[in-house]
Design a protein around this nucleic acid. Structure first.
Length: 744
DNA sequence: GCTCTCACTTAGCACGCCGTTC
DNA sequence: GAACGGCGTGCTAAGTGAGAGC
């Protein structure tokens, strides 16, 4: 943009701020105004033995004591932060403004000291275990140094030993004996930067090779049947399978597909097949539909066979041995070839995602492990032994050139530790968030434009839980933004709107091209600053032209060790859940109502984080069915009440035992039906409120599970009502360590 | 201070399994 | 035993952020 410098200079002068860090960006020239994007999609927006139980309780008592001492320590000096952190009110996607002034004092210095102390405590507990582990590592190191062949010979024995020792995992074991869970959270973490000391796995599972279509399934070009070469046919099947998907109605998808498909054609095919619209894939499409239907119609025995085969593959490839423990791998299958399904208006949608071969694969494992073998007649691209990373397998995909990884399941130690650490960082933020807020409020008056921009952006990240907003490659990805990458066209300023002062309207596409739409009143100084930032800019110019995520995160790092923009999202999500649970849960609610309250608190967070989903395709129908059930239940209730009344009248005249019993029976029936009706109504409310909101994302990624565990324990709600099996496995650490007094 | 790469987390969608109801 | 519907699960895209290298 040639006029960029000039108009920004003017803006700086009028704003009496410095010019020195002026960044020039030239990235908007081809941007289209994409207001009419895909709005339909985006929308507007354990049972243990008694001895084990006792042992566990004892451990918990000790942990409880520790936690209590910690909390006392915390509240004795920092009690003022313990109450209200994030005043979440309706509308729930906006947090209440807290004008708490500036609180920089010695107290904060103290809190920093405590943060470090706490971290140290976390690092140094269970020293005993570490000594043991170190011995094992030493032993392995010695083995490393010995003769390779000798080592090769010893391996199977050693492996057996490891597997014998293992208590964490395989289903076989779980079926035969009570499963003893490994409490990694009671053990020492690696402190040398390594992620593991020993890693052994079987490598990835490749998708099956392409099976050519049967002879009677034909492709037609311009009305004439045409036999395709195997390569071209395979790619054609990718398209044929997607025929009833919306993707195949999009021009970019079709264009990209056709271009990449042509690359797979023989020269003869290329010369014949010139236009996609003359291609007829319907026979292929019907064939795949029939196959899918046939799979559904398989006999019980056939289905059982498939299940057993999948289980065998899972047992063979779905686990690895990491530091003496058998751990579940997350995604051990290589992504099959197909057509790229980018989200939103992705410029590369429809492109061919090529088949990954062993020669594309990098294996990561211990030197002293039994290395995975490539399929016969092939070789791996590389076998490396990097214990500074957590991945087992990687390859580079051909669409964006990005690296794909095979990593461990969320229930693994390596993922769990990281998750726990994430919430601890967010809890540290809780201790200093008021100081940080006071600081950015102060910065709104700075003489330097870059500082003002940084402060306003941080305010949005804190108040609205916006994502950081890294810069993206234009033309390579969908045009989506986060806070730092907001453009002028994404906000509108209203000095007054709906009887509120200083309203900012946000309208932009965020991650996954999900629309963020929100109107919020802001503080006057924020509003004035935004006006200043907008001066002399074009719609496609950056709102924060002197800011990026790197600058912002560097600043945040100075404010608190480990603080980044995304910590605010975790912090605000978790603190909101905690506050909402306190506010919404009432002691006189029954379990069903309490769960509704929990879901409402969860929903408040999902709204704050803008976790949307497309309404389920069967939503209307399932709501109708539920309503029919409710209506029927109401009729039943009214009939039961009448019968109860009649029975009472009978009992009054007859005055015998039989009629008394009848009254009791009818009364119980009324109670039972009322309860059933209440459950149905709660279900309907819950479902309606969840129509366009995805609760899972916040539950899995933003809400400190200890808050939920504490809530369950406090109110006698079983944890199974809140977390399903997978979630309980992921949050095993939290379920084990949090008691009802846990405070985020 | 910038770009680029790499590693990792966060995200919504699709599908099929399994429980419920008749 | 069939039909139905909800939910769990797998899949993989799309983010964040650190750090290397210039």
């Amino acid at each position: 943009m040639s006029g960029d410098h000039a108009h920004k200079r003017h803006q700086m002068e009028s704003g009496s701020v410095d010019y020195n860090s002026h960044k020039h960006k030239d990235k908007h020239k081809d941007r289209e105004h994409k207001r009419e994007r895909d709005n339909s999609k985006n929308g507007n927006s354990e049972h243990r033995s008694s001895s084990e139980k006792k042992h566990r309780e004892k451990e918990k008592e000790q942990l409880k004591e520790k936690e209590k001492r910690k909390e006392e320590k915390f509240h004795s000096s920092d009690g003022k932060y313990g109450d209200k952190e994030n005043g979440f009110v309706s509308p729930p996607s906006i947090k209440v403004e807290e004008d708490n002034g500036y609180h920089h004092s010695i107290k904060h210095e103290k809190s920093f000291k405590r943060e470090r102390d706490e971290d140290d405590r976390y690092k140094h507990k269970h020293k005993k275990v570490k000594v043991e582990n170190e011995k094992k590592v030493k032993k392995r190191k010695q083995e490393d140094d010995s003769d390779y062949e000798e080592r090769e010979e010893r391996k199977p024995k050693k492996r057996t030993k490891v597997e014998k020792k293992d208590t964490t995992g395989g289903k076989k074991k779980a079926k035969n004996e009570p499963e003893e869970k490994w409490k990694w959270w009671e053990e020492e973490r690696h402190t040398d930067g390594s992620k593991w000391k020993f890693l052994e796995h079987k490598g990835p599972v490749f998708p099956p090779p392409y099976e050519p279509l049967p002879g009677h399934i034909r492709f037609y070009y311009d009305g004439k049947a045409m036999k395709l070469s195997p390569g071209a046919e395979e790619v054609a099947t990718f398209y044929a399978k997607m025929l009833d998907h919306e993707y195949t109605t999009k021009d970019i998808f079709k264009k990209n597909f056709f271009k990449d498909w042509r690359k797979e054609m023989t020269s003869e095919e290329k010369s014949k097949i010139a236009e996609l619209k003359k291609c007829d894939f319907t026979e292929m499409h019907k064939y795949f539909k029939a196959l899918s239907e046939a799979r559904k119609q398989m006999s019980k025995e056939e289905k059982q066979k498939t299940k057993e085969e999948n289980e065998r593959i899972l047992q063979e490839y779905g686990f690895c041995v990491m530091d003496n423990h058998r751990e579940r791998i997350g995604n051990f299958r290589i992504e099959p070839p197909g057509l790229f399904r980018g989200r939103g208006d992705h410029p590369k949608m429809g492109k061919l995602k090529r088949r990954i071969r062993p020669e594309d694969i990098i294996i990561n494992c211990s030197k002293d492990s039994v290395h995975p073998r490539p399929p016969p007649g092939t070789r791996w691209k590389e076998v490396r032994h990097d214990n500074k990373v957590t991945w087992l397998v990687s390859w580079t995909e051909n669409i964006q050139g990005s690296i794909k990884y095979i990593m461990l399941n969320p229930s693994s130690r390596i993922k769990g530790e990281k998750d726990w650490q994430k919430y601890e960082t967010a809890r540290r933020l809780k201790k200093c968030v008021e100081r940080i807020r006071a600081q950015y409020r102060e910065d709104w008056r700075s003489k330097e434009m870059r500082i003002r921009q940084r402060a306003v952006a941080l305010y949005f990240i804190d108040k609205l839980a916006l994502r950081a907003g890294n810069e993206k490659d234009e033309g390579e990805t969908a045009d989506t933004v986060g806070c730092c990458s907001l453009r002028v066209e994404h906000i509108k300023l209203y000095p007054q709107l709906d009887r509120q002062d200083f309203v900012v309207e946000f309208d932009f596409l965020g991650k996954d091209s999900i629309r963020y739409y929100n109107k919020i009143p802001v503080e006057k100084r924020v509003f004035k600053n935004l006006q200043l930032f907008l001066e002399n800019k074009q719609p496609e110019d950056d709102l924060f032209d002197r800011l990026n995520t790197s600058i912002l995160n560097k600043h945040l790092q100075e404010l608190m060790d480990g603080l980044t923009a995304k910590v605010f999202r975790t912090y605000n999500a978790s603190i909101t859940l905690q506050q909402q649970l306190k506010e919404l849960t009432s002691p006189d609610e029954n379990i069903t109502e309490k769960i509704l309250s929990y879901n409402r608190a969860n929903r408040a967070v999902a709204l704050l984080c803008n976790h949307q989903r497309a309404p389920p395709k069967t939503f209307e129908k399932s709501m109708q069915n539920l309503q029919i059930k409710i209506d029927e239940k109401k009729k039943q209730l009214s009939a039961a009440r009448k019968e109860h009344k009649a029975a009472k009248a009978d009992a009054k005249t007859l005055r015998d035992e039989k009629s008394k019993k009848a009254v009791d029976m009818k009364k119980r029936a009324v109670e039972r039906i009322s309860e059933q009706l209440m459950k149905l109504e709660v279900q309907a409310t819950d479902r309606e409120e969840n129509k366009q909101i995805a609760l899972g994302t916040s539950k899995l990624n933003y809400l400190d599970p200890r808050i939920s565990v504490a809530w369950c324990k406090k109110w006698g709600v079983s944890i199974e009502k809140i977390y399903n099996k997978t979630q309980r496995e992921k949050f095993a650490w939290a379920i084990d360590m949090a008691d009802e007094d846990f405070e985020f």
